[in-house]
């Protein structure tokens, strides 16, 4: 497809990404001047150790996590909206987050009930592994079901059913759980970009990069899906094969992100709409990169707000994304009056 010229908007977006990345590192509960941050990065010994540790082991991994989570969730949301031709679809529509929640619930709440134990050491990997397993099991079920089903819309309903099913089991587990375990589980549900070790950030980045590269290959089938499945098929597209690939890539993005940072609401649903409104386009050659960059920027901003600069308190990121995001989307829609996929 021929694309309109978008060079300047993309340049502005990229500059914005760099700006907010630096701002995200600069602002936090401890006020660290910019030159001290830069010195920490180049490992200049004149910076005090506490600052260097905060910057290198806390703020930079957190900012990278925010970029990856924001971009990945936004791309996933875009894919689901196009595949299901539904502007309300999001990355969690397949029940991935419910699967991840169930995995974590079984780990945290189940351990209490069934008498298992978890040392603090094991938690670094136990949580993401449990969440990934949960997400993966849901993905597997959805894929098995989708191979039996011709109608794409039915997959949407199957995803919803898996979500309800998982939510029900979580309710039962919660009912029998002790207060402190329940609190731990609820905290996971708030989402958190912080506390990822460099090893975790590395794995997150690796999976993100692979999924991102594969996403580029999906641009062509996604564009033909803009005409609807039957037209796409008449253009020679292998509809079921491409559908499976889109589902797998989306699950890879959302599964690994949810595993490490918890279920983060709003980004995946709203960012693709913001990208469509900003660029006034439906072409995935434009929407894929713009959703990714916008997602990263928006999650960086939400994280800055959640940190309440120069304050000890940190608000749950999940609350911030919704509190600030929902009004923005409502305002954009009222202003533009039309909603597209």
């Amino acid at each position: 497809m021929k694309t309109q010229r978008f060079g300047i908007p993309f340049l502005i977006l990229s500059l914005g990404l760099v700006l907010f990345f630096l701002l995200n590192i600069r602002l936090g509960s401890v006020d660290i001047p910019l030159n001290a941050i830069l010195k920490s990065i180049i490992n200049d010994p004149s910076v005090q150790d506490s600052w260097r540790i905060i910057v290198m082991d806390f703020r930079i991994p957190k900012a990278i996590t925010a970029c990856i989570a924001g971009a990945g969730l936004a791309i996933s949301g875009l894919f689901m909206q196009t595949l299901f031709r539904n502007p309300l679809a999001g990355p969690f529509i397949l029940g991935i987050s419910s699967g991840a929640s169930l995995g974590v619930a079984l780990l945290i709440l189940g351990a209490g009930i069934f008498g298992g134990f978890l040392s603090a050491m094991a938690m670094e990997w136990a949580l993401p592994i449990a969440a990934s397993l949960g997400a993966f099991l849901v993905l597997l079920s959805v894929l098995l079901a989708s191979n039996k089903i011709k109608n794409t819309m039915s997959i949407l309903i199957i995803g919803l059913m898996f979500s309800s099913f998982a939510a029900a089991i979580i309710s039962v587990l919660s009912y029998f759980s002790e207060a402190d375990k329940l609190q731990q589980f609820i905290f996971w549900g708030f989402g958190s970009l912080a506390n990822l070790s460099w090893n975790q950030v590395l794995i997150l980045s690796l999976v993100f990069f692979v999924a991102l590269m594969y996403s580029i290959r999906l641009i062509k089938p996604l564009n033909s899906l803009l005409l609807g499945e039957n037209y796409a098929k008449s253009l020679g597209m292998n509809t079921q094969g491409n559908r499976t690939q889109i589902l797998v890539i989306t699950s890879l993005f959302t599964g690994v992100i949810t595993a490490f940072v918890g279920p983060i609401a709003f980004i995946g649903l709203a960012v693709p709409h913001i990208a469509r409104l900003v660029f006034n386009s439906s072409n995935h050659k434009v929407l894929l990169p713009s959703s990714a960059i916008l997602g990263a920027i928006i999650l960086l901003i939400c994280d800055i707000v959640a940190q309440l600069p120069n304050n000890e308190i940190t608000l749950p990121i999940n609350a911030i994304t919704s509190i600030f995001g929902a009004p923005v989307v409502i305002w954009l829609l009222i202003k533009k009056k039309k909603i597209f996929i």
Partner: peptide, 23 residues
């Protein structure tokens, strides 16, 4: 083909939509 079903609401331009025929 030209089908009876309407195409989903999207922001493709006329030229972009026609160019999809080249896929």
């Amino acid at each position: 083909v030209v089908l009876t079903e309407s195409i989903p609401m999207n922001q493709l331009t006329v030229q972009e939509l026609i160019a999809l025929g080249r896929q």
